[in-house]
Write a protein that binds this DNA or RNA. Structure first.
Lengths: 216, 216
DNA sequence: ATTTTAATTAAACAACTGTTTAGTTAGCGT
DNA sequence: ACGCTAACTAAACAGTTGTTTAATTAAAAT
């Protein structure tokens, strides 16, 4: 069994040449980027190696092969999304406020975590790892549906189709980031990923959704 | 110089074994599907060949190589989207009605033309062919922005950010189709691509957008 | 009918890419 | 300080994939 190497105990953890955990993590995060851009068959192990500053052999050393690495990436992402969203308590807050906090945290997640949405999209396009069937984000989706139903029953939201509307909410939040590389040419001056613009976008989304959903 | 073979003049154009135009078109449409799913580097010429029922050699015979074929696909798609949207006259109609006809025709286009949106997304993810810079869809986008500005000036629409809102409209319309392979697991009973559900989705989108945008 | 040309294919080729191997080195434990 | 083990590398290997070649066949032209 492998003994777990620790960070350099003295001085600080400046640069440490050999550390299994670290390089493994480096490969994984490089792989996320590569797979997010190019998908399973389009990704190149060479690129993943370069991105993480190791040789191709390391990938097989730690992850057996490309496909296994891809699965590892998928699992990693499921973990990350779960821990990001389990904190939110929708049940307590009033529906309008709950909607706002969901949208805010989802947009924040997408902006901090670009690769996630992109990889999710690759999965949608190619559907190889059956990411769509994985638990985790499905529950998140269902909680949006529930929230909408609750709001409708309370008479706060208009009578929309909860399922389709939940999809559309997801779409509004994701599209801006996932399609960014194409959208950025539209108004080159406006830096779409700057924190100010993201702030404006968040407001725009909330504005549109709240006005679109509220009764009366 | 190649003489252009015509369709069989007599009887009908049932099945014709050898016809450059037809096989070229077959390859092109097979390539659209393959590239839309797997992107440039992920696509396999072998698959494109199989999908179009010819040998790999034909691809190079007609399109030189994979990259050139990819460019041809991109050009083809620009043509198609242009001819689909140049017909719409937004200027004349009242803004609310114009918005509705844009959304309707955009959703219809996406539903009839699944690969387009998917390929556009691949471009967004990998940004290799600079599809985002290509003319055509940018103009379409600008016309949505213009429409929103007009509606705001007339006091029909609320004072939203026209640029961001245009992106969000696009997002709502696209996401449903582009992410379909992941969304379809959410409610397996509901056939998302059936004409009824698409109809419902169109109504849901229009409902959300109109309520979200209208003043008063 | 025959010739000619373009469309098409099968198989070889070449380039690329994922995986393995054998060997090297850093760092920990003693 | 020394040796052992795990982290790591370079290069070879094997499998895949894009492209080319040479031969074949269908259809148009004469």
């Amino acid at each position: 069994m492998p003994k777990t190497p620790r960070f350099t105990p003295k001085h600080n953890e400046e640069k440490q040449s050999r550390n299994a955990e670290v390089t493994k993590a480096n490969i994984l995060s490089a792989a996320i980027e590569e797979f997010a851009q190019y998908g399973l068959s389009g990704a190149r192990t060479e690129n993943i190696a370069k991105r993480s500053g190791v040789t191709k052999a390391m990938i097989c050393y730690y992850f057996k092969n490309k496909k296994t690495l891809y699965q590892a990436v998928l699992n990693q992402l499921v973990l990350e999304i779960n821990e990001s969203f389990e904190a939110i308590d929708i049940e307590q807050q009033p529906v309008e406020q709950a909607l706002e906090s969901i949208v805010r945290s989802y947009i924040k997640f997408e902006s901090k975590n670009r690769w996630h949405g992109m990889l999710w999209f690759q999965e949608a396009l190619q559907n190889q790892g059956r990411y769509g069937e994985q638990t985790g984000w499905q529950e998140g989706f269902q909680s949006i549906v529930k929230l909408l139903e609750k709001g409708i029953n309370e008479g706060v939201f208009r009578k929309v189709d909860p399922f389709l509307t939940a999809i559309n909410i997801l779409g509004i939040c994701s599209f801006y980031f996932d399609a960014h590389e194409n959208l950025k040419y539209l108004e080159p001056d406006r830096e779409l990923l700057s924190s100010e613009t993201i702030e404006q976008q968040t407001d725009a989304v909330l504005d549109l959704l709240v006005s679109g959903l509220m009764a009366s």
